[in-house]
Design a protein around this nucleic acid. Structure first.
Length: 506
RNA sequence: GCUCCGAUGGUGUAGUCCGGCCAAGCAUAUCGGCCUUUCGAGCCGACGACCCGGGUCCGAAUCCCGGUCGGAGCACCA
């Protein structure tokens, strides 16, 4: 150790240039270590043999939202990596939970995200297949028709006791099944139950319900069917029938996977490889489709793309880029630990994608009207993008002793006698509540630099996700400009008209 | 309550399977500096983490046991 210290001391005696020189001569390798920023990638999937078949399986209760985007991107990434098929499967076997427009919206959302599904499947079109699968299970004695009251059925499960219907013969169950899927009037609403293990330690896995009667008309199939399969049943049947090789989904599905495995076992099907990742909790924004729907009906939101919502289309409308979603979810990885979604990081990624293409403009929030005394006639000269004259300019003729609008907050923070810089124009000094011209020089003592607008500015509203819209004035030069812009010192926004923009992020 | 799972800085992650190259990498945030006519971008720097306690081992973020804390599920939703 003393030798090491001695050596280090010796090296440190030398100048940096000298050190570099020696290193260059003798050990060129160490200097070329430039840590290349490795693009983070998803871990390899286990049990991949050749091409994969994966799926997205949303229910059509509404358009896709931020939470769905994760599943979409992850599946898409793996299919792109290994090659194969990505199936978009619409899970619409609950007529009570369907928004007819959602079938189309979901596909649009996928395309916008750059998620290229290669096959589109709608479950309500596969009812006969589900019935056939159910018959097989009944004939095997692995499924039975039950007409117990809900409470009795649940109580039996908790007590690990069999209900009276569990032991009826397959023939008898099949007969009941056929009558329920037929068009006879029903006196009771029986269900089809998959037999598992009444003593399974996890009550969630004990005999579970596979079909139930819903008399309501289905948006796609009308009144043609009334005995609808539940998610666990169709997922198992479809995952096999569509040839899924790998299934990745959230840990909230772990028990469902256990239930679905019974069907695979009974029918001798090969299981796909399952992976369950931790759930990412997304806060500060409305994510539940049912809540959104309610709010839209109540007029609280303008539609599925309202700024306050976290649907893909709402975020797209505000100016988030598809690449942002992709990078964020890849960076988040496939951890099996639950985590919190970070708007901070999400926004930071988005900023990288939009900054260079966003022109800069002045917006004064909560403006205060002032007159600048002793001010000569001037010209304001401002870049559309900092340090890049090729992008063009915003130019204004400012008359002498002009009336200007400045952010009230910045003015109130000014101390008596202090000087502030109006960006692209000149300096002003505050004196006894009045404002005086204070020279045009930029350099010299470091001053705060703020945005401003003139009398030709336009009333402008920024709609914000939290519902507290900002009102102020936008510089005239922005008229006609539509799209993502940066309002200097305020935020990035998506300008949608000459009077309105949607708030994006700082 | 029952079943299962997990625990790395303020936040998100890498590493954990197959112990040593990890006195722990990256991103983001924060704070400084440079640059800049934005509180934006870029560059440089600083700050900051292996839940606790035992055990195995020459060696533990990594393996084992216990504890604590957190989470998911327990629907005739998906």
């Amino acid at each position: 150790m003393p030798d090491v210290k001695k050596a280090v001391d010796q090296v440190n005696q030398l100048s940096l240039e000298k050190q570099l020189e020696i290193a260059n001569e003798k050990y060129p390798d160490i200097l070329h270590e430039e840590r290349k920023e490795k693009e983070k990638t998803l871990p390899e999937l286990k049990n991949v043999h050749g091409k994969v078949v994966m799926r997205l399986a949303p229910s059509p209760s509404g358009p896709l939202h931020l939470g769905h985007s994760r599943l979409c991107i992850l599946n898409d990434e793996y299919v792109k990596r290994y090659g194969g098929e990505l199936i978009l499967r619409i899970e619409d076997t609950n007529p009570n939970n369907i928004l007819p427009e959602a079938y189309e919206m979901i596909q649009e959302d996928c395309r916008w995200l750059g998620v290229n599904f290669t096959k589109y499947v709608v479950q309500s079109e596969r009812m006969l297949f589900y019935y056939e699968t159910a018959r097989s299970l009944i004939k095997q004695g692995n499924a039975y028709m039950c007409s117990c009251r809900v409470e009795d059925f649940k109580r039996d499960l908790m007590n690990s006791t069999a209900c009276p219907h569990r032991d009826v013969s397959p023939e008898e169950s099949l007969e009941v099944f056929e009558s329920v899927i037929g068009d006879m009037a029903l006196t009771e609403h029986p269900v089809l139950v998959i037999k598992t293990d009444l003593h399974h330690p996890n009550p969630a896995v004990r005999d579970w319900i596979a079909f139930r009667v819903i008399e309501k008309s289905h948006p796609h199939t009308g009144k043609k069917y009334r005995f609808f399969p539940l998610m666990n049943f169709c997922v198992a049947a479809d995952d096999h029938d569509l040839g899924l090789t790998n299934v990745i989904r959230g840990t909230d599905h772990i028990n469902n996977t256990e239930r679905q495995k019974y069907i695979f076992r009974y029918l001798g099907w090969k299981l796909p490889d399952y992976f369950h990742y931790g759930i990412i909790h997304i806060g500060d924004i409305i994510l539940k489709t049912s809540m959104m729907k309610k709010g839209i009906i109540a007029g609280e939101y303008t539609g599925w793309d309202d700024v306050k919502l976290a649907t893909i289309r709402a975020l797209a409308a505000r100016g988030y880029k598809p690449e942002t979603f992709r990078k964020y979810w890849i960076d988040s990885g496939l951890n099996d630990v639950n985590a919190d979604f970070s708007w901070e990081i999400f926004n930071s990624i988005n900023r990288q994608y939009i900054d260079r293409s966003s022109d800069r403009y002045f917006f004064v929030n909560s403006p205060e009207k002032i007159s600048v005394l002793d001010a000569p006639e001037s010209k304001a000269h401002l870049n559309l993008y900092p340090n890049d004259d090729s992008r063009g300019f915003r130019e204004y003729d400012i008359k002498s002793n002009p009336t200007l609008y400045l952010p009230a907050e910045d003015l109130s923070e000014m101390e008596n006698g202090s000087i502030i810089r109006l960006k692209g124009l000149y300096n002003i000094r505050k004196e006894d509540g009045k404002y005086y011209f204070a020279g045009i020089e930029i350099h010299g003592e470091r001053k705060k630099i703020i945005q401003w607008v003139g009398e030709d500015s336009i009333p402008f509203t920024i709609k914000k996700p939290d519902g507290n819209d900002d009102h102020g004035l936008l510089e005239k030069h922005a008229t006609g400009k539509i799209g993502i812009i940066q309002l200097e010192r305020y935020s990035f926004v998506k300008k949608i008209s000459d009077s309105t923009a949607l708030f994006l992020h700082r």
